[in-house]
């Protein structure tokens, strides 16, 4: 019973945050709304018995990625977004029906297959089981992600550094 109420509260907060992300003209408000969504999602992950992922989710998304977003928004001092010029202003008139169709497609698939199955109390999301899977069966993908992170880091440093050289020229 408590889990059900919590699910709908968290789901409501997540959707509210998501709507505010795309509706706010001020990027700072968008970023803070996204943080709200991420928190609500962490709560939902806990309801899905994925405790480890929920905590990592907060640490990675709320703790690092969103701080980076806020940092860039404040660094560039981006002001409130102006309305698009010309016909682009009416993009939403086409976009909204398309998105509704997309949602309908996704939802019908879901309802056909999984209308009744409830959440199971399981041990799958524990640190132990994820650790075992990550370092035995999936050790190669895990190592590849570390290469990906190094490449991303080098790329970010290069992009930031190149600009300094052009200033000097």
């Amino acid at each position: 019973m408590v889990a059900t109420i919590l699910f709908y509260v968290f789901a409501g907060l997540a959707i509210l945050g998501a709507v505010m992300v795309i509706a706010n003209r001020n990027p700072i408000y968008s970023a803070l709304s996204l943080i709200l969504t991420l928190f609500a999602l962490a709560g939902i992950y806990v309801l899905l018995m994925a405790h480890f992922i929920a905590i990592v989710h907060i640490a990675v998304y709320a703790g690092a990625i969103m701080v980076l977003f806020l940092f860039v928004i404040m660094l560039l001092n981006i002001r409130i977004e102006e309305k698009a010029p010309g016909a682009f202003r009416y993009m939403i008139l086409i976009a909204a029906p398309m998105v509704v169709i997309l949602f309908y497609e996704l939802a019908t698939v879901v309802f056909k297959a999984f209308s009744r199955a409830p959440v199971k109390q399981t041990n799958v999301g524990s640190v132990e089981s994820i650790g075992n899977a990550l370092f035995s069966q999936y050790v190669l993908p895990f190592e590849v992600t570390s290469v990906l992170l190094i490449v991303a880091m080098a790329g970010a440093v290069y992009l930031a550094k190149r600009r300094l050289n052009t200033v000097k020229e």
Partner: peptide, 27 residues
């Protein structure tokens, strides 16, 4: 218990909102 379908519906809503954001925003 909450059915799995509701979690998936929530995921679908968030995905759709994400698509909408990519299409209509300029920033």
């Amino acid at each position: 218990q909450v059915p799995i379908a509701h979690f998936l519906i929530l995921a679908a809503i968030l995905f759709s909102l994400g698509v909408l954001g990519v299409v209509i925003r300029r920033n």
